[in-house]
Design a protein around this nucleic acid. Structure first.
Length: 603
DNA sequence: GCCGTTTTCGGCCCGACTGTTTTCAGTCG
């Protein structure tokens, strides 16, 4: 785990333990916020621990928390964390993680019945003694029991590539419901996060009851969790195809199969923009917007931006006319801000923008530079791959089958490479309008050596260098390994730099600042591998790389035809990293891209 | 515990839903 993640985890735990001890809620929130600031930071905070002022300069980190971070860097411990851990049983944190059980209830269970873990909670549910506690009726207890059951089989967050098709299908379903004038998905999915907790669907309609009925009654609904006038929640069945990664680590109820919670919010058309903004989040972004509104004598809620007054009743209930409400852009404008793209609404500096940034879009991408054929572990023949790239309007496709060390993936040795070159030359003869580059996804061996000698690397048209094995090595070794690959004079792109698989394995944890600096110096593009199981670089790394002046490549790592469709996830990740199109080599025209690649492969 | 274009002290976002209540507390997003 990276230093930032380690620190964030401890700060988050401090926040939760303080909450269970009944501490000041603002102190609790301050730690939670600091944890998010640390987790979301694009720089490795370990490098800042010699400069206290630099830590304190980060929003959400003050002098006290800075000292805790410094202590952790020096000693590997946080005294406050240790002291709190001695007071709060570890099992209580697991109980707190059960949806529907909040700090007040868990604290009450702990104090009144000495419950310190899930097993204890199950025991008093089974013997019925939980019913004697305040606010614990039959229905409440049944809900808790269901939540425990689901939590025990829950796999955590859902990959964006699994959630997105489901959300799109539900939005289409809701659009066809009579009376519905607008439908969209919101939440972390709209922000393009790599994984999501649940799916948020928003509709505008004149017939809320009809929309709710159409939602709770649609095919795929396994259970209705809540059903109100403005909000419904259901558990929805998932069909998951992990393709060449066999299904592992993603499981659901044994009988029902994997599922996801989907929330429907029903709003009036007039407040569509305010509602979409509110339900898109992030929570931190929204809080900042509300604070900003208050400073300007306004109040912001999911119904609109209103003039501030001292009444207790919310303005929309008193017929107060909003300053803005129908469109997101109007509300940002009313707050003196440019429109902020959903992907960067994370309270990571976006509210200081004076104009809407031009971030990369799917339509900007003109080339795929990382693709496999049946020669290694792809399922597309050479001709099919090139046809697929052409169908998407690309001007360049790079054929980059695995190198010889990736034996299980059918990696090519030099002899097979030469033969492949003949086939590519022949295909070039009969292909118009498409530049076909003959490259290789060359293994970066565990010590940083490349899987081919320099002569072979130079002979290839393009080289994507990727780590595939020894992904558990320590950070220092991993850093040297990647730096050595970047320094090779024939490497164009560093492929999936960390080798992580989301929710599956953490991958390498190199010193990213050093990787950025070397990549910039040696003119190597860092890849955003667009497969939704990888998204590697991840969003925060992209932000760091962009700030460090690096070039980025967004590649689908095509193994089968559908993989081209993963481009959207790579682009979303780029947008979350504030990536402008000109810094992504896949957006360049044929000549510029060819010249950039060719500098390392002279003919 | 953090923060400051009214502040270095006194604030800290806002509303819906649920279940257990008879006016509201807790949770969630």
């Amino acid at each position: 785990m990276s230093f930032n993640s380690d620190v964030a985890k401890r700060l988050e735990e401090i926040s939760e333990m303080l909450e269970l001890l009944g501490e000041n809620p603002f102190k609790v929130n301050a730690h939670a916020r600091a944890a998010r600031a640390v987790e979301g930071s694009s720089q490795d905070l370990r490098g800042l621990t010699d400069h206290r002022a630099a830590l304190v300069a980060i929003e959400g980190i003050g002098p006290k928390i800075a000292d805790k971070i410094i202590e952790f860097a020096k000693t590997g411990r946080m005294t406050e964390h240790d002291e709190l851990s001695a007071q709060v049983p570890a099992g209580l944190m697991v109980v707190l993680a059960i949806p529907g059980l909040g700090p007040k209830t868990v604290r009450m269970l702990w104090q009144e019945r000495q419950i310190t873990d899930v097993a204890g909670l199950k025991r008093i549910i089974e013997d019925g003694s939980i019913l004697d506690l305040p606010r614990m009726g039959k229905k409440a207890v049944e809900k808790i029991a269901n939540a425990i059951r689901f939590a025990e089989q829950d796999t955590g967050r859902l990959h964006i590539g699994v959630a997105m098709p489901v959300a799109r299908a539900i939005v289409e379903h809701m659009r066809r419901v009579p009376g519905v004038t607008e439908a969209a998905y919101a939440g972390s999915l709209r922000r393009g996060k790599e994984s999501i907790g649940d799916i948020d669907i928003l509709v505008a309609t004149k017939d809320p009851a009809g929309a709710a009925a159409a939602f709770t009654g649609m095919p795929g609904v396994l259970a209705v969790l809540a059903s109100g006038e403005r909000k419904c929640s259901v558990r929805f069945a998932l069909e998951v195809d992990l393709g060449r990664w066999e299904m592992e680590g993603l499981k659901g109820d044994a009988e029902e199969g994997p599922s996801v919670q989907v929330d429907l919010r029903v709003v009036d058309e007039a407040s569509w923009g305010a509602a979409l903004m509110y339900f898109t989040g992030s929570k931190e972004h929204n809080v900042r917007l509300r604070e900003r509104a208050l400073k300007r004598g306004l109040t912001l809620n999911e119904y609109g931006l209103f003039p501030e007054d001292s009444e207790d009743t919310p303005p929309q209930q008193r017929g107060v006319k909003p300053v803005a409400s129908a469109a997101e852009a109007e509300i940002y404008g009313g707050l003196g801000l440019p429109s902020i793209p959903p992907e960067i609404r994370e309270d990571r500096g976006e509210l200081a923008l004076t104009e809407t940034p031009r971030l990369i879009e799917v339509g900007d991408i003109r080339a795929e530079l990382h693709a496999h054929t049946t020669e290694s572990d792809g399922s597309l023949a050479l001709e099919e791959l090139v046809a697929g790239a052409k169908a998407r309007g690309f001007h360049t496709i790079a054929v980059t089958d695995h190198s010889k060390s990736s034996a299980v993936a059918g990696g090519l040795d030099v002899k097979r490479l030469k033969k492949q070159r003949e086939a590519i030359d022949a295909l070039r003869e009969r292909t118009e309008g498409m530049t076909i580059l003959h490259g290789s996804e060359v293994d970066i061996l565990s010590d940083g050596r490349m899987d081919f000698d320099d002569e072979t690397l130079a002979w290839l048209d393009v080289v994507v260098a990727s780590p595939h094995a020894a992904l558990g090595q320590d950070p220092a070794t991993a850093t040297n390994r990647l730096l050595r690959a970047i320094e090779n004079p024939h490497v164009n792109i560093l492929g999936h730099p960390t080798g992580r698989l989301i929710n599956r394995r953490p991958g390498l944890e190199p010193a990213m600042e050093e990787v950025y600096a070397a990549a910039r110096e040696h003119d190597v593009a860092l890849e955003i591998n667009a497969h939704w199981l990888r998204l590697d670089l991840r969003d925060t790394h992209v932000r760091g790389a962009v700030e460090a002046g690096c070039l980025i490549a967004i590649d689908c790592d095509v193994h089968q035809g559908e993989d081209f469709d993963n481009l959207v996830y790579g682009v979303l990740t780029g947008r979350r990293g504030w990536l402008p199109p000109e810094r992504c080599v896949n957006t360049w025209d044929r000549a510029r891209l060819g010249a950039w690649i060719g500098r390392k492969h002279p003919r």
